[in-house]
Structures are given as C-alpha cells and as structure tokens.
Amino acid sequence: MDEPDRWRHMASAPKDGSRILVTVRPSEQGPAEVDLAYWSKGDQFGAEGWRASDSSPGCVIEYAEPELKCWMPMPSANRSRASMPLPWEGDDAEEFGGLGI
C-alpha cells in the first residue's frame, strides 16, 4: 500500500477482517458517503460480506457488493477529522447490473 491516500477498486479490498474506508454509492437514501467497513466471514448475526464497522450483534449493517464503489486503507492516526477523504465521484470502470433503475 505505497499510496495510502488513493481510492482503489473494491476487487482489491482486503477480506481479512481489517477495517478500511469505503465509498458507499449514492442511492434513494442519500448521497455518496465514506464509511468504515470490514469483511466478515459470517457468523450467527449475518452472512459473509461487507459490514459497517459500527455494526453490533442484533444490528448488523451489511453492504451488498454493488453498494460499495471503492476503498482505501485507513489513514494514519495523525490526521484530523477535517482531512477525511471525500467520497470518490469519478466514473466507474465497469457497470454493475441493476443500478440506475
């Protein structure tokens, strides 16, 4: 991860349970946003997949693959909240089925 402040395609996101920043696509519920997420292997609270880091037993927030646009590693602890990256708003490299309905 030689360029920590660069958005990357979700296909390259780590699925080892480490927390990463993700761009959540805009939808009927609101504009694009950045969230902290991790890959869960699945457990009694939900299936394998991407979860918001503020999930808890009984209130699991899961993201379907097409909901997440891109990812980047967690920034260093020395950054201020004001320097949080903005959601990536560029064109997608590939079309995801079902979006834009």
Rank of each mutant, 00 (worst) to 15 (best):
G42E: 09
R6S: 10
M84E: 08
P75C: 03
G100I: 06
S27Y: 00
D16L: 12
D2V: 05
M72A: 08
A93D: 13
F96N: 04
K41Y: 06
L99H: 11
E48Q: 14
E62Y: 03
E33G: 02
P66D: 13
P75K: 05
W39T: 07
D2F: 13
S80N: 07
Q44K: 14
A93M: 12
D91P: 01
T23G: 05
K15D: 10
P85F: 12
M84V: 05
W7E: 00
W7I: 05
C59N: 14
R79E: 15
D35E: 14
S18H: 10
M84N: 05
A47V: 13
F45A: 04
V34N: 04
E65S: 01
C70L: 03
S80T: 12
S55I: 10
P73F: 05
D2I: 10
R81E: 12
P87T: 09
E95M: 08
W50C: 01
R25L: 02
G100C: 09
G98A: 09
E48L: 06
K41P: 00
S80G: 10
D16G: 07
L86S: 06
G97C: 11
A32E: 01
E95N: 09
S83T: 14
A13C: 13
G97F: 12
L86I: 00
R51M: 11
E62D: 09
E65A: 00
P31Y: 00
C59K: 12
S76N: 11
H9F: 11
G100M: 04
P73D: 06
T23P: 01
W88C: 04
A13I: 01
S55F: 09
A47Y: 11
E94A: 08
W71L: 04
A93H: 06
E65L: 01
P31F: 04
S83N: 10
Q29M: 08
V22R: 00
A93F: 12
D35R: 03
S12F: 07
S83R: 05
S55D: 08
W39G: 05
S76W: 11
G98P: 02
E89Y: 05
M72S: 04
E3N: 15
A82R: 15
E94T: 11
V24A: 03
W71H: 07
G42L: 10
P57V: 14
E89T: 09
V24D: 00
S27L: 03
G97W: 11
M74T: 08
S18L: 07
E48H: 07
M72N: 03
A52Q: 05
P73T: 03
R8K: 14
L36G: 01
L68Q: 00
E95W: 01
D91F: 08
I20W: 02
A32Y: 00
E89V: 00
K41M: 06
A64T: 09
Y38F: 15
M72F: 04
P14D: 14
D43L: 05
G42A: 13
A13H: 03
P26A: 03
A32G: 03
I61D: 06
E94G: 01
P75R: 04
L36F: 13
P85T: 12
K69I: 02
I101K: 12
G98Y: 00
F96I: 10
L36W: 13
S18P: 01
M10Y: 02
D16T: 11
S83C: 03
Y38R: 15
Q29A: 07
D35N: 10
E65T: 02
S18M: 14
I101T: 09
A37Y: 03
K69P: 01
E33T: 06
P14N: 15
I61S: 04
E33M: 08
P14S: 15
